[in-house]
Deep mutational scan, measured.
Amino acid sequence: NQASVVANQLIPINTALTLVMMRSEVVTPVGIPAKDIPRLVSMQVNRAVPLGTTLMPDMVKGYA
Rank of each mutant, 00 (worst) to 15 (best):
K35V: 14
A3V: 13
L10P: 13
V30C: 04
P50E: 07
D58N: 11
L19H: 07
D58T: 09
M56K: 09
Q9K: 14
A48K: 11
D58A: 14
P50F: 09
D36F: 10
G62L: 09
P38M: 05
M56I: 09
R47N: 10
M21R: 03
I37T: 06
I13M: 11
P50T: 11
A48Y: 11
M22F: 10
K61P: 10
P57Y: 12
K35M: 13
V20R: 09
R47Q: 08
N14V: 03
M59H: 07
P50H: 12
L10T: 09
V45T: 14
G52W: 05
S24Q: 13
L10E: 13
A3Y: 12
M22T: 02
L40A: 00
T53K: 05
T28L: 13
S42Y: 12
P38L: 07
S42F: 13
M22C: 03
M59N: 08
D36A: 06
M22K: 00
N46I: 13
V6R: 04
P12S: 08
I37Q: 07
P33L: 13
T53C: 05
Q44H: 11
P12T: 07
A34H: 12
A64K: 03
S4A: 03
L51Q: 14
V20T: 14
A64I: 08
V49S: 02
T15D: 04
G52P: 00
T18R: 10
V45D: 00
S24V: 12
A16N: 09
K61A: 13
I32S: 01
V27T: 15
P29Q: 06
Q2I: 15
R39S: 14
V26M: 15
R47G: 06
T54L: 05
R23I: 06
V27E: 02
N14E: 08
M22D: 01
V27H: 04
M56H: 10
S4G: 05
K35D: 08
A16D: 06
T18S: 07
T54W: 02
M56Y: 11
Q2Y: 12
G52V: 02
S4K: 01
M21S: 05
D36G: 05
N1R: 07
T54V: 09
P29M: 06
Q44F: 07
P50C: 04
N1C: 04
S4E: 01
M56P: 01
Q2W: 08
A34V: 13
M21G: 03
A16K: 06
P33V: 14
P38C: 04
S24G: 12
A34M: 09
A3G: 06
P12H: 12
A7R: 00
Q9E: 15
T15L: 09
V41F: 06
E25M: 06
I32Q: 00
L19C: 04
I13S: 14
T28C: 04
S4H: 00
T18F: 04
Y63K: 03
P38K: 06
T28H: 15
P33M: 07
G62C: 04
N46S: 14
N14S: 07
L40C: 03
M56E: 14
V41W: 03
N14L: 11
A48S: 10
P29I: 09
A34P: 05
V6E: 02
V20H: 07
P33Q: 05
P38G: 11
A64P: 13
K35T: 12
L10N: 12
R23S: 06
I37Y: 03
L17K: 00
T15K: 05
V5S: 04
A48T: 13
V60I: 13
P33H: 12
R23A: 14
K61W: 15
S4I: 01
A64N: 14
R47C: 04
M56D: 06
I37E: 03
K61R: 13
R39G: 09
V30R: 10
V5P: 01
V6K: 04
V49D: 02
N8E: 11
M43I: 04
P33E: 08
V5A: 09
N8S: 14
T28M: 13
L51H: 12
M21E: 02
S42V: 03
Y63S: 04
L19R: 12
A7L: 04
P29H: 07
N8I: 07
I37H: 03
T28N: 13
A7S: 11
A16T: 06
M21N: 12
P29T: 07
S42T: 15
K61T: 14
V26C: 03
R47E: 10
V30D: 09
M59D: 15
T28W: 15
V6N: 01
V60H: 01
P29K: 05
V20L: 15
A34W: 12
L19I: 07
A3S: 12
I32M: 03
L51C: 04
V49A: 06
N8P: 02
A34G: 13
L19Y: 08
G62I: 04
R23Y: 06
A3I: 08
S42N: 13
D36R: 04
Q9I: 10
V26F: 08
L19F: 07
P57L: 05
V26E: 08
T28P: 01
V45M: 06
L17T: 00
M43K: 07
L10A: 15
D36C: 03
V27L: 09
V27S: 06
T53D: 13
A7W: 02
M21Q: 06
R39Q: 09
N14I: 03
A7F: 02
T18Y: 03
L55I: 10
M56W: 06
P50W: 09
A16Y: 11
Q9R: 06
R39I: 10
S4L: 02
N14D: 09
V30N: 12
